[in-house]
Design a protein around this nucleic acid. Structure first.
Lengths: 347, 347
DNA sequence: GCCAACATTGTTGGCGCTAACATCCGGAGA
DNA sequence: TCTCCGGATGTTAGCGCCAACAATGTTGGC
């Protein structure tokens, strides 16, 4: 910086002013400094700037399970939004093998003096750590629980789930079974609630739910459990699966039992992973707009910057709509005789 | 820090020594300072430390397509390895819609004064930018091309591909077709090379390759192109697909044409995404050890820290083996009469 | 008992930048 | 012509920390 100042024949402060776009600098001077910067290849040192202004321009992201489609997409969305807003991003992923990895992750970010934090890992333990007074502020949790006391951005999971269920009921199914994802994730609870609400709204009975963990393997296992119920006489003609990955496992289980989808059983997933459209049959699913989630998260974060930096306000919530994409895996309910006597096919 | 020093009755420098684990401090003093730190809740300011030491402790990662399984997994692996090595991570993803996003991304990292950089986006344009003298040093590219002049960590794609092809030839297939992924990715080129090498090694003819872009849609399209060739009389009994996502599209195309997998055509993918095992049929594929890639990248990065920080050395290469996982989608070649008269089935 | 040698602690001077204040200058108004 | 004001620039004082050196103990050997 001193070099630039010398070269341009001004003080280092004027250089600083030019770099920061300060208004009161004569155009000719700006030009001279610009050229000097060009010539020396000067780049402002963001560390020193951060020290002087006590603004790091860095936001933290706490992630986990970034191998899953949803979290990975959300992360990308946030990254994009952050860059547009002129922020850098530090990402830390939780390690599920360690007990207090949530605390470690938060410490990591505090140490980095981030100016804000987005958690895309909706874990209760993490939420608790983040409500502590020394946690980074402001903060936003993506898909956090309503009662966790944090500002939240989330997809309207319940609405998406309800749409899926209504779609199936509209096709003539008497009821819809549900395979839940990992119940520790609020997404999972919300989809469950939407499913229940839609069934209740249509006066349809709500069969006992099955519990998976988002993985294709768990989908397969729960699919088999569903088949066992069907073999026991329970009418199973439509399944709303917690996510597309599990739906793949369900399709597999149904296929092994020689059941036709959607002829015998209709299947609907959630997420709209790129593969969904190309499964056989193409998977009906509910699309989430992750890019939008990223944008809203950042907008909610920046909105809080102005306010009094006290405790996070739980009343701040942003909802992003979800959209049903009907495809081949959902069809009309099988003829009544089939449904009345399900043993026929599985025997 | 001054508070801590006052409370412990020592100078700030002694506090600094305790915090940094400097050896020559009396045990009693250490204890006193520790308690003072505890009491005041003091945390060292990493910005000031970075300014004083000119070491930021931050590594940069340039990513893209983090929605794809491979990049997402690699990112996780690097994050873990970095944390273990005591580094923070700044992630920037390339925006493919913008022409010079590679340059922007690198500038972003330079501005952040990262101490090193891992590129998990094997783009030629990016590689060129990274060979410029002002790019972050040291650096490592994951899956970079051999002639890009950068240190590289990569999975042994060629070996994995060759294993896949040999597996298929071993099942009696006369040859194996190949649907390539995005040809701009060196992974894609390497798999192609492995495929070609294995065919040549077995004296099998190499059919013209088909070109996809990693997406399920492109797999579907290329699968249909393959069917057209088959309909035209070309014997197609085994396909090695560039990745699992495209393989899903291929399976769909084959299914629509009422071809049985593996009865009529065997299909092998690459990556081993979690869904692969639960497709119908279960997809034979080649697993990449992404966690290992992350570790090796970091180790290669840190290894370079000692050396003279001149241009990146292209001779630094680390290879991670790949492993074939035979599953249901690959089976013996159909009986000769079927192969001799392929028109029969597609009509 | 004295001094060298070492262990322990304190003091000083930046790291590169920005905020706040100080200074200078030209032009409008009295 | 003089004053006053605001635009343009320079000067000074840190931001919180660490490296280097200075100044104390403290030990052991003669």
């Amino acid at each position: 910086m001193a070099d630039v100042a010398r070269l341009a024949g001004v003080s280092h402060q004027t250089v600083s002013r030019v770099v920061n776009g300060h208004p009161n600098v004569r155009a000719a001077t700006v030009e001279r400094v610009r050229r000097a910067i060009e010539e020396t290849g000067y780049r402002r040192n963001s560390t020193a700037r951060a020290l002087a202004t006590s603004r790091t321009n860095v936001l933290g992201v706490i992630a986990s399970e970034t191998a899953l489609y949803g979290p990975a997409q959300t992360l990308v969305g946030i990254e994009r939004a952050a860059r547009e807003a002129g922020y850098f991003l530090t990402v830390v992923s939780l390690d599920h093998t360690s007990r207090d990895s949530a605390a470690e992750a938060v410490d990591h970010l505090i140490q980095q003096s981030v100016e804000g934090c987005v958690a895309i890992t909706p874990q209760r333990r993490l939420a608790e750590r983040l409500t502590a007074p020394d946690a980074p502020r402001p903060l936003v949790m993506v898909e956090g629980g309503e009662d966790w006391g944090l500002p939240v951005v989330c997809v309207d999971q319940a609405q998406g789930a309800a749409e899926a269920v209504e779609h199936l009921l509209g096709l003539g199914h008497r009821t819809v079974h549900h395979i839940e994802g990992n119940p520790l994730w609020p997404q999972s609870r919300a989809r469950l609630a939407g499913w229940r609400r839609a069934l209740a709204g249509a006066g349809a009975p709500a069969p006992a739910t099955l519990h998976g963990d988002w993985s294709p393997r768990s989908g397969y296992e729960q699919g088999r459990a569903l088949l066992a119920r069907r073999a026991a006489g329970e009418p199973v003609t439509a399944v709303f699966v917690g996510n597309d990955q599990m739906a793949v496992g369900v399709l597999r289980a149904l296929g092994e039992a020689r059941l036709d989808v959607p002829g015998d059983v209709s299947v609907v997933g959630f997420d709209d992973v790129p593969e969904a459209e190309f499964l056989s049959p193409a998977l009906t699913t509910v699309r989430q707009d992750f890019a939008r989630v990223g944008q809203e998260s950042l907008s909610l974060l920046l909105q809080q910057v102005g306010g009094a930096d006290t405790a996070p306000r739980a009343d701040l919530r942003r909802m992003v709509p979800a959209r049903l994409l009907p495809r081949g895996s959902s069809g009309p309910a099988p003829a009544p005789d089939v449904r009345d006597n399900p043993r026929k096919e599985t025997s």
